Simulated scan of single mutants.
Amino acid sequence: MNISSVVVRCKPEDLEEVLRSLEESGMCDVYFHDETGKIVVVIEAEDVKEEVFKMKAIQSLPKVLSAELIFSYSDEWAMAKEYLDRNKERVPEILNDENVKAEDIKYQGRVPKWV
Rank of each mutant, 00 (worst) to 15 (best):
D97K: 03
I58K: 00
R86G: 00
Q59I: 03
R20Q: 00
S60F: 09
L95S: 01
N87V: 06
L84K: 00
E24R: 02
K101H: 04
Q59K: 11
Y31D: 11
K38H: 13
Y31L: 12
M79P: 09
K54L: 05
E50F: 00
K49L: 15
I70L: 12
I58V: 04
F71H: 14
D34Q: 04
L65I: 12
K54R: 04
M79A: 10
K63N: 05
D75I: 07
D34E: 07
D85I: 13
G37V: 05
E13M: 10
L22W: 01
D29E: 13
M55K: 09
I58L: 00
L69M: 08
E24S: 01
N96S: 08
K38E: 14
A80P: 12
I39L: 08
K63L: 03
Y31G: 09
V42S: 11
E68C: 12
K11G: 11
Q59Y: 10
D47P: 05
S66I: 04
L95K: 03
H33Y: 12
V64D: 01
E82S: 15
M79T: 06
L15V: 05
E82H: 14
P12S: 08
E23N: 00
M79F: 14
A57W: 10
K38Q: 12
E17N: 08
D85K: 11
E46R: 06
K101R: 13
A102E: 10
N87K: 07
C28H: 08
K63S: 05
E98T: 13
V52T: 07
M79S: 12
L15E: 02
L95T: 02
L69E: 08
S60T: 09
L69P: 06
D34N: 11
S21P: 03
E35K: 13
L22V: 02
E44M: 04
E23C: 00
M55L: 11
S72T: 15
L19V: 05
